[in-house]
Every structure is written in structure tokens, then in C-alpha cells.
């Protein structure tokens, strides 16, 4: 049985903690299930790698890395990069949708103005732009 280095244990426990926190965010509806998936998978992977030295060692050797800990960090960094890229893609799509909605709103408001429906009384407390 290989012994676990202190770093490995800290990483593994941290990963378990992160996974639990992510699940808590989903439970309290602050994170949607869709976005939680990657986080749960990644933190589980780190935890598994942290606790199973042979697997970690195998991967480390296969990648040509000297220290196991570096492998964990490298994988973590790779994950972070993927996650950021994923977020940028999502953000681009959201901006695109935001443009559509803003434009739609402008035309709807114009239609209302032309009917004389707005600029009269802000009855529902919405107020002007």
C-alpha cells in the first residue's frame, strides 16, 4: 500500500468539500443542475485521484510528469481552462440573446408609443426608461 502524501490528502479532502458545496448550491437553487455537472465530475475526479495513489502514479508516468502532486494540479488547471472557455461560450450566447431581447423591447415600445399607450400614465409603476 502506497502512503498518501499530505498534499494528496489535503487536495482530496478539498475536492470532497468542493463537491459537497456544489451539491448544496444546487439544492438551494443557486446553481442549476446543468452547470453543476462539470463541477461535480471534476471534484470527484480530483478526490479519486487524491486517494488512489497507484492510479495517480500511473497517470503521472504516462504523462511524463515527475511528481504526482503536479499531475493533480495540471488536471485542475486543465479543468479550470475548460470551464472558463465554457463560460465564455455561454456568455457570448447570452449577449447575443440579450441583443435580440433589447431590440425586441425597443420595437415593442415603439409600437406602444405609436398607439399612444405609453408616456401617458405609468400605471403599473414601471416608469420610463
Amino acid at each position: 500500500m502506497e502512503f498518501l502524501s499530505r498534499t494528496q490528502i489535503i487536495l482530496a479532502l478539498g475536492a470532497v468539500g468542493l463537491a459537497l458545496f456544489v451539491l448544496e448550491l444546487v439544492r438551494s437553487r443557486r446553481l442549476s443542475e446543468e452547470y453543476s455537472l462539470l463541477w461535480v465530475v471534476a471534484s470527484t475526479a480530483v478526490a479519486v485521484l487524491g486517494f488512489t495513489t497507484p492510479l495517480l502514479r500511473g497517470i503521472t508516468r504516462a504523462l511524463g510528469i515527475l511528481y504526482e502532486t503536479s499531475t493533480v494540479f495540471a488536471l485542475g488547471l486543465a479543468f479550470t481552462t475548460v470551464m472558463l472557455l465554457f463560460n465564455s461560450v455561454k456568455l457570448s450566447r447570452l449577449s447575443h440573446e440579450n441583443r435580440q431581447l433589447t431590440r425586441e423591447l425597443a420595437f415593442l415600445r415603439l409600437a406602444l408609443e405609436e398607439q399612444g399607450a405609453v408616456t401617458q400614465t405609468p400605471s403599473d409603476g414601471g416608469g420610463g426608461a
Binding site: T102, F107, L110
Partner: peptide, 25 residues
């Protein structure tokens, strides 16, 4: 003149595109 207002700033290209849609409609 006619006035269309974006609720938030979208950029000059988006403003032009809005103008195009108005022209088409």
C-alpha cells in the same frame, strides 16, 4: 424624426441592425 431606444447599450453595429429592421418592416 422616428426614435427607437435600446434599453441598454449594445454597440453601433447592433444599433445599425435595429435601424435595418425598422427600414425593412
Amino acid at each position: 424624426v422616428h426614435v427607437l431606444r435600446h434599453a441598454v447599450n449594445l454597440g453601433v453595429g447592433a444599433a445599425l441592425q435595429t435601424g435595418f429592421r425598422y427600414a425593412l418592416e
